[in-house]
Design a protein around this nucleic acid. Structure first.
Lengths: 188, 188
DNA sequence: ACCTGAACACCGTTCAAGT
DNA sequence: ACCTGAACACCGTTCAAGT
């Protein structure tokens, strides 16, 4: 799927793809694997790795890009074979699959930290949201049975909104959408 | 808000909070600031920093915990002062504020990488989602005007779902919820 | 044109010595 | 009981020397 540029010499192309293969496995196993250790596993000198990928980010990015490319190619394929709503659902299912097995190296890089943070903060945050939901339920303005953890998870987009004015507008729109979906149906 | 444990000697308490203050600023400015440099800025030896926080994660976690605590305390305060739906909205507004200024150090740690990844993958992913949405619009089963970027942002919870069976169930439930909200209203 | 691998500055982490 | 700071193994990165 992203063949190494043909402009490279044959041995350079081989090195490049062997580095990528090794790096994907090594970084999936241990997100903090050192670049020197990856070079050694790939059987090249550290300088060779740096010739192809000037820094850690460039290497991770290339691995990530290959995975993204798979997702992008999948969309038209699903549209061709399924009704639109099914296609959309299947596409997001695949995205969920990547998230689940942490096959995405970019994501895996954060896993260690997220785990420790999760344990200490998840509970209190869910508790706070639970209070807000219950207050609304008792007042009859929020529908029954909304799960606080679900809502926290869904609200995670807040942490990934692009900076700047556009991001704020988008955030507002999404917040409206979510809050709207929480409202209790008008009573009969 | 999280005063250093009283069991610590007075000078240790001072060191601990000075380290946290310095670390919050330093890590916000540069997510990759070294622990040795933080120790130096705080005017303590590296050993002292490690005595209080055995690794980088522990330090980041403590900073993060202080910020979470603010959010948790805010919930009952808002409930006391506003109608429930307003309280809920204000709380998430505050959460959005943290996301926006990247004041969360945990988040800032990922910023560098996210930026480069963003540029290269955001476009193609939005394009793929756009295709899926348009296919549904043309078939009349997805409502008009849903923004592909909005949807990608909202779907980000997929990357943060906890592993294991519970996570899968929750993911399914949220996917259902989102896909449901995309459906076109039954035509008159 | 590309690769190797020694070398450099710096990192996280430890621990003997101090107070 | 806590702090200091030298020291260690290792990291990312560079670059002269090779083919």
């Amino acid at each position: 799927m992203n063949p190494p540029p043909e402009s490279l010499r044959a041995d350079a192309q081989q090195n490049r793809s062997r580095i990528l293969d090794v790096a994907r496995k090594a970084l999936t196993a241990d997100p903090e694997a050192s670049l020197n250790s990856i070079a050694k596993l790939a059987g090249v000198g550290p300088g060779t790795l740096y010739r192809h990928f000037p820094n850690r980010g460039a290497l991770v990015l290339e691995i990530y890009r290959q995975e993204i490319q798979q997702m992008v190619d999948l969309a038209p394929a699903l549209i061709a074979e399924h009704p639109p709503l099914i296609a959309l659902r299947l596409w997001f299912d695949r995205m969920a699959y990547y998230g689940r097995i942490k096959h995405s190296v970019a994501d895996a890089l954060h896993a260690v930290m997220n785990e420790s943070i999760q344990g200490e903060t998840y509970g209190p945050m869910v508790g706070a949201i639970g209070q807000l939901l219950r207050a609304g339920e008792q007042a009859g303005v929020i529908r029954q049975g909304v799960d606080a953890e679900d809502l926290l998870l869904l609200m995670g987009f807040l942490w990934r909104t692009p900076p700047g004015h556009d991001g704020e507008v988008r955030t507002e729109r999404l917040l409206d959408l979510v809050v709207e979906s929480l409202k209790a149906p008008p009573s009969a």
